[in-house]
Simulated scan of single mutants.
Amino acid sequence: MFDAMLQRFVHMFEIVAAEGHGSLWMVLFIGFVFGAIIQWSRVDKFEKIAGFAMLEDMTVPKMLFFAIGFASIFLYFLIEIGMAHYHVKPVMLGGLVIGAVLFGIAMAIFGKCPGTGPISVAEGRIDVLVGAIGGIFGGLFFTWAYPWLEPIMGPDYGELTLPQFFEGQEHLVVLVYGLALIAVAFALPNIEYLDPEDHEEKVEI
């Protein structure tokens, strides 16, 4: 059993290595830029995620809607000219629903997501480090238990993308979709959650 699990891990890394994500320097550069943007926008802070979960802080959704809308447009056209490529995962309804519920609960409790967590670890946050270690072991458990979990992952609808449903109008659909998300980002109210300490600091000022 251990040998079979080890082979799955090795195969997983072989798949990732063969995808050709660019040079190591390019990956590092993108990582540094991503980290800088996250820290500048402060969405790696617990109060931002917690405030979002309570609908008392719109910083995270505004950033997400804008980033997804902007990236959707430009990534699609980069793919069209051959400078990028998709790696679409299959739509497995059971796994998506269960995973979304677990992810949402954990994100609300932990106050971090897989993108902001490593940045907080780099800042020296011990609580986030403990959570990151837990996430690694959770991934190991999922990989080990996948043969037993697979039956509840379906139904599998295959690798679906939005433009597939609008054959002949793909460019227009992507453009409208991206601009709509950007519009939502600007339409969301500029409200920011402040914890009790922040309130006290503002009163003193």
Rank of each mutant, 00 (worst) to 15 (best):
I119D: 04
Y76F: 14
F141D: 02
L129G: 14
D156Y: 12
D3E: 10
L160A: 04
Q169M: 11
H171C: 00
K89S: 11
I182Y: 06
V33M: 14
M107E: 07
L160N: 05
D195N: 15
E201P: 10
A100L: 11
F52V: 05
L181S: 06
G138W: 04
L6E: 00
L179S: 02
L194E: 07
F186E: 01
K45M: 10
F65I: 05
D195M: 02
D127Y: 06
P196E: 02
P155D: 02
F65W: 08
V174A: 02
G69F: 07
V91F: 10
F52M: 14
G31T: 10
L78W: 05
V16L: 13
F110D: 06
F103E: 05
P196Q: 03
G117E: 07
K89V: 10
K202I: 14
W25E: 12
G20E: 07
I37G: 07
G82V: 06
S41E: 04
D44W: 11
K62F: 00
G115N: 13
P189M: 00
F137G: 01
S72V: 02
V203E: 13
P90Y: 00
P163C: 01
V60D: 00
I182E: 01
E80Y: 05
F52S: 10
Y157T: 04
L175M: 14
W25D: 07
K45T: 12
I38S: 04
E56K: 15
M1P: 11
H87D: 12
E201S: 12
M1Q: 04
G154A: 08
D198G: 15
W144E: 01
G22T: 09
I182S: 03
L188S: 08
L175Q: 02
A183H: 03
V43I: 15
V91D: 00
Y177R: 02
G51E: 02
E14I: 06
V121I: 15
A132H: 08
F141M: 13
P163I: 00
V174C: 03
A180W: 04
F2A: 06
E200F: 07
E14Y: 01
F52Y: 07
E167N: 10
F29E: 03
R42K: 15
D127Q: 13
A18F: 03
T59F: 00
G135V: 08
P147E: 03
F32I: 15
A183R: 07
A183T: 14
M83C: 03
D44T: 02
G117Q: 06
V60A: 03
A185P: 12
H199C: 08
V33I: 15
F74T: 13
A17P: 07
L194S: 03
S41C: 09
L24T: 13
F137T: 12
V184P: 09
A108I: 11
F166G: 05
E197N: 12
G168P: 11
S23G: 15
I79S: 01
H11Q: 12
A71L: 09
F142T: 11
L93M: 13
T143D: 01
M107T: 14
H199Q: 12
A108Q: 11
H171V: 00
A180Q: 05
S72L: 10
F2N: 06
A187C: 06
P90E: 06
M58E: 01
K112M: 10
F137H: 00
F66Q: 02
L179C: 12
M1K: 07
V173H: 03
D127N: 13
E56R: 15
G138Y: 05
F166Q: 04
I30S: 13
S72I: 00
I109Q: 09
V43K: 02
E56W: 04
V88F: 09
I49K: 00
F70E: 00
Q39L: 14
